[in-house]
């Protein structure tokens, strides 16, 4: 009778397929991931049944629960011109470096008087300023939001005309507000749009889980 030989080393398990699959998944997720931009405030948007996907090209007005307003706009060329126009209007001068830094700024919610300080600040300074900020002013005496919107819109329109961008791919205005925000703030923002003859815009919502038959 021969003895049962115990294998000297642990039995090897062929992990190749598993590893292959894992890397396949990694590749898939890397390619599909779109990184969330570093947002100044956390917004929990209300949900809706709407199935329309937000267009890529938007001028975004973000409103948090406290009613503070933040602004953001895509497109480097447009942003550069916008900042210079706004600087001229509010008599704030921006250096070449300021403009370059502004181009990569995700969104901001500070009055013009603090903007250059905000642009020059590092991440911590910005976070502190975001926390302490009162948002972009939009009262009738000092309507900076209105100017950001009107000038931004003009710049976008000019840019689209020069580059022959079709109308249906043109810029849209979107409001991203927290569900718990008081409606009177949203109403005021909509009023600011309407004062500048911008009557069509998008409201950003989340997907509603309940299905309609």
């Amino acid at each position: 009778m021969s003895k049962i030989k115990m294998p000297k080393s642990a039995p090897a398990l062929d992990m190749t397929p598993m590893v292959d699959l894992a890397f396949l998944l990694v590749t898939f997720f890397i390619l599909t991931a779109n990184f969330r931009q570093n947002e100044a405030v956390i917004i929990k948007t209300p949900s809706s049944h709407s199935e329309k996907i937000l267009p890529e090209n938007v001028m975004l007005v973000t409103i948090d629960t406290a009613g503070r307003v933040f602004y953001s706009l895509g497109g480097k060329e447009v942003r550069k011109n916008l900042l210079l126009t706004m600087g001229k209007k509010y008599k704030v001068s921006f250096t070449e470096t300021d403009v370059t830094r502004f181009l990569i700024l995700p969104q901001f919610g500070v009055p013009m008087s603090q903007l250059s300080q905000y642009i020059r600040g590092d991440e911590n300074t910005r976070a502190a300023m975001d926390k302490a900020s009162i948002g972009i002013p939009m009262d009738s005496v000092n309507n900076q939001l209105g100017d950001w919107i009107a000038y931004g819109w003009n710049e976008k329109r000019t840019f689209e005309a020069i580059n022959n961008i079709p109308k249906d791919k043109g810029c849209r205005i979107a409001i991203k507000a927290d569900g718990q925000t008081d409606y009177k703030v949203i109403k005021r923002v909509i009023q600011v749009f309407q004062e500048r003859n911008l009557n069509s815009f998008n409201l950003i919502t989340d997907m509603e889980t309940e299905q309609i038959q």
């Binding site: 329309k52 996907i53 937000l54 069509s200 998008n202 950003i204």
Partner: peptide
Amino acid sequence: KPKTMEINM
């Protein structure tokens, strides 16, 4: 992806 509602005032 975030969804959106279009509003025309």
